[in-house]
Design a protein around this nucleic acid. Structure first.
Lengths: 192, 192
DNA sequence: AGTAGTGGAGACCGATCTGTCTACCCTGAT
DNA sequence: ATCAGGGTAGACAGATCGGTCTCCACTACT
């Protein structure tokens, strides 16, 4: 594997599991079998490495969700597929994604709390991208723009809430419960 | 002020804003004007201090929410008051509670990711207590046990999701949006 | 007035932090 | 065979970490 990719992958695994500030650069290089000098040729600082792990997780997570949802035949199926994917993630039935330790972007945002911080902004961007994907599917079901916006945001909120419940309380059924609410929101509008 | 209380209050403020692992014990004592030895007479370790800040925030936050909700005349009003309180919190219109940097229990859970860790368990307990409070209000509206459980969990998920959206994306209207969904969930069942 | 106890200031310990730099090794091209 | 480039190992620097300990000033009680 490329050394840079190796570093980012290992660093992500450690930061995700233990937190960014709890993991030192020495641990990252020890676990990835790379010299410290090599790390600093690829990344100018630890923060640059953190930024790379956020990018890494962003594309990894987004393409995983995209893959799980886009084979659905219609918008409704795609939304349901999203929560099925979450359910597999929480219950660790998915090999394509790391073992569940909450949402990396939420975790990182907690450690870089200031919204204006570049790394926090990266996390916000990921969430905006996810909201965009959700909106794409919802717009296949409804034409009214306000309805699409409202439902997309509702689904996004339920996704975040379910992830938190799964992580903080260990509620492994959080995705299923959220899906029930989503179903209700969609069907009351589809059946009018 | 009591020295112990002073330490916990200052430590909470720092941990909440910057993260637990990003703040050293030296910063805590410098900001609270207390000698290091004094800190270690009250707390056996940094982790014990962290545990105390979680307890501190737990009672502070819970009693704040309780105060904001229990003056409502009925269960529905109490649920709405909850989201009004969240809205004030996100938009920093509430002096009783610290400036908004996300949910402390979510943030701390991210840094102590292992569910079995005592500090993570404290956070889970807080969330269970909040769920219990919500359930109390919902049970005043509905008698069917399954309905009460389902709605309580739905409201809790929406509360967590809104908090995340407010913190990660900076969506200051997250509480209002969540309240709209809660209203829909309640009224469709009340009006049948 | 003398004494006991509390807490502040901060030295100190060993470990670890981010980041730099030297010294060596190995490989591939000339 | 020689040399250059890129990588490794790891020493090193200066700061900070969590935690212990000493010294001293102040207060309160007898």
């Amino acid at each position: 594997m490329e050394r840079r990719e190796q570093l980012v992958s290992v660093a992500f695994g450690l930061f995700y599991r233990y937190g960014v500030h709890a993991i030192g650069i020495n641990r990252v290089i020890a676990d990835s079998g790379v010299a410290k000098k090599t790390l600093y040729t690829y990344f100018s600082s630890k923060e640059a490495l953190v930024a790379a792990t956020v990018d890494y997780r962003d594309s990894q997570f987004f393409s995983w969700i995209e893959g799980r949802t886009q084979r659905a035949s219609d918008g409704q199926g795609a939304i349901y597929a999203l929560f099925d994917a979450l359910d597999d993630w929480f219950n660790e039935r998915e090999k394509l994604i790391h073992a569940f330790h909450g949402c990396y972007f939420i975790n990182v945002s907690a450690e870089f709390s200031d919204l204006s911080h570049p790394i926090h902004q990266q996390c916000a961007s990921h969430k905006r991208a996810m909201l965009g994907l959700i909106r794409l599917y919802v717009s296949r079901l409804f034409s009214d723009d306000k309805t699409v916006t409202m439902l997309s945001e509702a689904i996004a909120v339920l996704k975040e809430g379910a992830t938190i419940q799964a992580h903080v309380m260990g509620d492994l059924k959080a995705a299923v419960k959220a899906k029930v609410i989503v179903t209700e929101l969609l069907t009351t509008r589809l059946g009018h």
